[in-house]
């Protein structure tokens, strides 16, 4: 049994009462530290029109350490690998306890708008993104259509 720190309760309530447009984060019924997340693909990105499922877990020492976040929906992105792991500095060494679930998810949504192939996690994707961006974007749109729509 673990009590839930007040900070997590506050964040959860605010996520419910004032949801971020394009982002939904709902705690699991069995574990209040585990969130089911859906992020909509940003407009004017190859992910537009897609609904991407993620999972977010708040470790015991949150907010001193960052939430663990992973894409569940397959996504073609140079900074997200085939297991859904995300290369994002604020989830690693740039984490600050003043960041919150909502700011983390906004950053992930922003990462979809601004892929960074120079700091890759999925090497093959990043490589293609650098040498043939239009084909990479075509792939990303195709994956979005195939995996992130109608599910």
């Amino acid at each position: 049994m673990a009590a839930l720190p007040r900070r997590i309760i506050k964040e959860t309530q605010r996520l419910m009462q004032e949801p971020v447009p394009g982002i939904s984060a709902v705690p699991s019924e069995t574990n209040a530290r585990y969130f089911h997340v859906i992020v909509t693909g940003p407009e004017d990105s190859p992910f537009e029109g897609g609904l991407f499922k993620l999972e977010l877990f708040l470790p015991e020492d949150y907010p001193m350490s960052a939430p663990k976040v992973r894409f569940i929906t397959k996504i073609y992105h140079p900074n997200i690998d085939r297991l859904g792991r995300i290369c994002l500095d604020i989830l690693k060494d740039k984490w600050s306890p003043a960041l919150q679930i909502r700011t983390v998810l906004l950053s992930i949504q922003a990462l979809l708008s601004a892929p960074n192939p120079d700091d890759p996690l999925a090497n093959d994707v990043a490589e293609l993104w650098k040498v043939n961006e239009s084909e990479a974007i075509r792939n990303a749109k195709e994956w979005t259509r195939r995996y992130a729509m109608d599910n």
């Binding site: 673990a2 309530q13 705690p27 574990n31 209040a32 585990y34 663990k68």
Partner: peptide, 22 residues
């Protein structure tokens, strides 16, 4: 957090024993 990281890699994170009503 190492076990958590592991859990993330192995797809499911859920720890059903940790339950508490908000």
């Amino acid at each position: 957090v190492s076990h958590v990281t592991e859990a993330i890699r192995s797809v499911s994170l859920e720890e059903p024993n940790v339950s508490r009503s908000l």
